[in-house]
Amino acid sequence: MTLVEFPAIALAAVVCWAAGSLLQIPAKNSRIFGSLSWLFMLSGTLVLAWFLTSYWIALERPPLRTLGETRLWYAMLIPVVGFLVEYRYKIGWLKYYCMGLATVFLGINYLHPDVFEKALMPALQSPWFVPHVVVYLVGYVLLAASAVSGWHNVIQNFRGRRSEKGESMSHYLALLGFVLLTFGLIFGALWAKEAWGHYWTWDPKETWAFISWLAYLGYLHLVARKTDPRKLQWYLGLSFFVLLVCWFGVNYLPSAQNSVHTYSG
């Protein structure tokens, strides 16, 4: 499958998510509607997983090279976090944000179609390519979910409806995200040694990965200091903006002129 089919696939996924979300209303009183709703929501994600698999085959390389390609992965994985959180914590609202975010990503890809290009520059042809990118990708997904729930908690606090369960959820999402960020950083360094000759050159992308890592390191130390969790929800919500700069903002900074990472644009 190629990008020609993408609009139809994206539409199918969004329709599945929307239908599943709407079915949650009658699902309150009926188990059958509940199952049906989950069937739809999961199908939306499965459609994307199927597309990614066949796109991978058609490209003859992992679809992880361009920002557009990684957005497809986010669109597939973010709802999964929402579903898992509901399964684990019985917190239902996160999944709607997640499906909304995924819809935005699909929309961006629809408006800015990628080109179908099999070429993979030699530096990217390495056993490190998939683990490095996938670890970061999953880390970003978890931290995005943590930021969303951080914001949600901030708003709920304003409305006088503090939820400790909600706070603990954003905390654990951030914690798992940090672990993956750390692995991503080190895998990146080990790979850079094999591909470019040195493990760290303060390339703008590396520098920003370091800054985002420090931001979450700061979070963990604020937690260790027993900072008020209500304040930390703000912190989690805002840290994600640093991550956004690292993810795609770097390409627009003055420092990006001589980056070895601009191929990721």
């Binding site: 303060w202 703008p204 520098t207 920003w208 370091f210 800054i211 420090l214 931001a215 700061g218 770097v250 900074l253 003055p254 420092s255 002129q257 001589n258």
Partner: peptide, 12 residues
């Protein structure tokens, strides 16, 4: 983080 931020914005 702040020093790295300066180093990550200004071209080196």
């Amino acid at each position: 983080a702040l020093l790295s931020l300066v180093g990550g914005v200004l071209p080196q």
